[in-house]
Structure formats: C-alpha cells, structure tokens
Design a protein around this nucleic acid. Structure first.
Length: 417
RNA sequence: GCGGGUAUAGCUCAGUAGGUAGAGCGUCAGAUUGUGGUUCUGAAUGUCACGGGUUCGAUCCCCGUUACUCGCCCCA
C-alpha cells in the first residue's frame, strides 16, 4: 500500500507550482510598492501565544491546533499573533514607530477539508503596527484591493464595518442578548450555542430563520459613540475619494478575540461556500494582550488557495515556464560527453538547455525535445564530433543553421525570443 | 464534531440486468536501421479502494471500514 499525503494537504506539481510562484511574485511586488516589508516567523510557536492572541474559546484554539511536545508548541494556525510577537520581541517599534509588514506563509488547522479549505494552507497578508490614523485603515483596504486588481480580479465585493471598542460592544451585547433571549428557542442550534459562547457571531449566521429574527435586532452601529463613528465615516469617505467600491455591512464581525473597531472582508461568488477570500481589521489591543507595550495595529489575511481558485475560475492567463532554448541529441558515449560539456558552457551564459540521459533513439530524443518545447535542437554524432561542425534545427519551422565551430558555439544564438 | 455524494488503467470516464473489464488522452516501440510536431500499426499498465456477507460464481447486490469530495460548524 502506497503512503498517501495527510488529509487536507496537497501537492503542487511543476505546472501549478510555477503558477503559484509567479502569483506570489506579483503579490510581493505590490506589497513592495506600498512600502511593506516581508517578515518570516517560525513554523511553530509556543502554544500560549495563540491562546492569548486568538482567544482560548475560539474553535481554532480549543480544537483545531496541531500541538506537540505535550502541548508546549503549536504549528501556527494564523500569522497575526506571530508577527506581533516578533514585533515586540525584536522591539521593532524602536527602529521606526510605524512598521508595515507583510508575509506569505503556510499555516495549519485541523479542520474538516472542503472546497477552498485545507489543513495545511497558505495565506498572504499585511500588518501595519503603530498608527491609529484612519488613513492606515484606508491604505490597508487599498492595498488588498490593489493586489486583487493587479491580478485582474473584478468580481469581489468589499464589505466593511466597525465593531467599536470593547466597552461599546459590552453595552451592545447586553441589549442584543436581551433581544435574542425572547427568541432563543426559535434560533438555530448553532446560534443557540453561539448565544453563550460568542453572541456576536450570530450576526453572520447562514440560517434563514436566524436572519428573520435578526431583522429587528438592535444594531451595533447605533451603540457606538461619536468618536468611533467619526473614525469609521472618515475611512468611508476617504475610500470614496479613492474610488474604492465598498459596501458597509453592520453585521460583519470577526472570529478572533483581538479585533476592535474596523473590520472588512472581500468575498467572491466564484468560491462556493467558503466565499471569504480576504478578511481583516483593526486590533488595537493585541500587543498589550501579548504582554507588550500598547500599539494600535491593523491587518488583513487572504487565503492563497482561494485566490488561486478565483483565478482559475476566471480563466486567468497564467505565465508559463521559460522555454528550453536548446536540446542536444546525442548518439554515442563520446557525443554524450561532448553534449554535457557544451550545455555546461551554455548554461554558464544563461542558456536554458538539456540533453538526453536515457540512451534513447534519435527519434525519441527529438520527441523529447518537442515535448519540452525546445526552440532549437542540435544533433551530435560521430560526424559532428569529427568535423566539429553541425546544424542547429529551429523546431518551430524546421529550418537548419550551419554551425562551424560547435565547441565554441555562440550563446547569442539562443538569447532571442 | 455532524450530514450528503463518490471510489474501475498515469489522467478523464464507460461497463457488466452478478460469469474476474474497456474507450479516449498520455506513456513506450515500430513504419527498412542519424531527425520532432500529422498519420498508421503495435505494446505495457488495473489485486474494478479495503474487509466481511449473500451466491455455484461479486467489480456489480447487502453490511462495515477507509479515502476522496461537497456542505454545516469554523474561518482566509
């Protein structure tokens, strides 16, 4: 019995891996344009970091983490807490009061896999730490939007909301739970459970009946004070000025404990049930929760697998691997050795070339060259070795060019295209 | 953790009203022996997911298991 990959993981075979890498590079260049710098953190952290950061009660921490060494360490299930940990541990605030960081990294959650959801998955995201200016909120949304736009993605909707301060939310939750308690028996089983654990999440329930009940529920926005509202309105008007197409959604909340005030989400219909492509928000209290000095911060994270799904569904024109410039067909021991010498010299001049290693017939080697999409083929045999001359054949039209001194072939021949 | 669907060649999938399997694509070889893409000819490859039951006989029917997949939950 062959050993199979673990549930919820996947292999990226060469074609897909190349596509993936080229999309990554595109994303990096946008981050760079926005003056965000890459940060890399360990694949695993102390489990305590996630308990404190994400919240002990969340599903992720309570039942989806890959922990080991008697629970001391955990494969990272998300990036914000590790980035903030690194920020605090390395005192990045001493280098510059505003840190603009991005990452592209793998993460791990032991969830039930489904479309767009894996156990080892990849996210790209950004964190801006150190400023409570609403301009940073706007820039963050602009950054996320620019990345998707640069990839030609048009059919995403931007939803934005504010969930206010902790104090404001407490007052609201009291009212909200008071309202819901009248309908508790009518709520879906999931929402009845959420009522105790995380009542805010009832707001984005998928149940129709829940949504019927929510129609007349108190609205969080109305419980926010003037400062909070103004901050939010300032972001919205700025986004309007910048021609960002968004919708406010007063029911948009976030799953993790560390979020405060601004929240946003980019959703796509091309994704199926897991339609959230990107999500983020402000988390002004996280640095303190992790035992560091106060620092207001905002960030977003986007699912890489889901992004690739959207691109594939939208017929995205993925770049292709560079063509093989030259394939050398060899026929005997001596020509094989000469071929290897020759391609070694050419490779040193950045010519992408290869030769046969399976002692195949000339015909099969030609087929192989064709399969590799080689631009030119050179056949090396006894005659060519003896005379140190031969012909390179251009595969697109079969034209052959006389090469007088094979051993010192001019690499410029292959540089065009 | 809960529910639905699926499991046959490397890939996409047929099929047998129960008699141990096929196609297309791909791979390999050949079409007078040193030249590809087209065409033609030929070949290899499957414990028909695994275990049990019914049966003279199961890839097909029944039960169980596992894997994959979609959805709930959760989240990006």
């Amino acid at each position: 019995m062959l050993i199979q990959k673990p549930k919820g993981t996947y292999d990226l075979l060469p074609e897909k891996a190349f596509q993936r890498t080229s999309i990554e590079n595109k994303i990096r260049s946008i981050f760079s344009d926005f003056n965000y710098n890459e940060i890399r953190t360990p694949a695993f952290e102390k489990t305590l970091l996630f308990k404190r950061g994400i919240g002990e009660e969340t599903d992720i921490v309570s039942k989806e983490m890959y922990s080991f060494n008697d629970g001391e360490f955990t494969l990272k299930p998300e990036m914000t807490a590790p980035v903030i940990r690194a920020y605090l541990e390395n005192s990045l605030y001493n280098e510059s009061p505003l840190q603009k960081l991005y990452y592209i990294s793998n993460m791990f959650r032991r969830e039930r896999p489904q479309a767009g959801r894996f156990r080892e998955f990849s996210q790209f995201g950004a964190e801006a730490i150190g400023s409570a200016d609403y301009l940073v909120d706007a820039e963050m949304i602009l950054l996320a939007d620019s990345i998707l736009k640069s990839l030609g993605i048009r059919d995403v909707k931007i939803r934005i909301n504010t969930i206010g301060t902790l104090a404001e939310r407490e007052i609201y939750l009291k009212e909200f739970k008071n309202y819901l308690s009248k309908y508790l028996n009518e709520l879906s089983g999931d929402s009845q459970r959420r009522f105790e654990k995380n009542p805010l999440r009832i707001l984005d329930s998928k149940s129709e009946k829940d949504n019927e009940i929510l129609k007349d529920a108190p609205v969080l926005y109305e419980f926010l004070n003037e400062n909070t509202k103004k901050y939010f309105e300032d972001i919205l008007s700025l986004l309007g000025t910048l021609n960002v197409d968004y919708q406010t959604d007063y029911k948009l909340v976030r799953g993790f404990d560390y979020y405060t005030s601004t929240t946003f989400e980019f959703v796509s219909d091309a994704l199926g049930a897991q339609n959230s492509l990107l999500g983020g928000g402000r988390y002004d209290l996280l640095t303190e929760q992790l035992g560091g000095k106060p620092a207001p911060a905002i960030g977003f994270a986007a699912g890489f697998e889901r992004l690739m799904m959207v691109l594939e569904n939208s017929g995205f024109n993925f770049p292709e691997e560079k063509k093989l410039n030259l394939f050398i067909v060899s026929m005997d021991e001596e020509s094989k050795i000469t071929a290897l010498k020759l391609i070694t010299a050419l490779r040193a001049q950045n010519v992408k070339c290869d030769t046969d290693y399976l002692n195949r017939s000339v015909k099969s080697q030609m087929k192989e060259a064709n399969r590799m999409n080689a631009e030119y083929v050179l056949v090396l045999g006894e005659d060519e070795i003896r005379s140190n001359s031969g012909k390179i054949k251009r595969m697109s039209d079969g034209n052959e060019t006389e090469i007088p001194d094979i051993l010192n072939i001019n690499s410029d021949l292959f540089k065009v295209s």
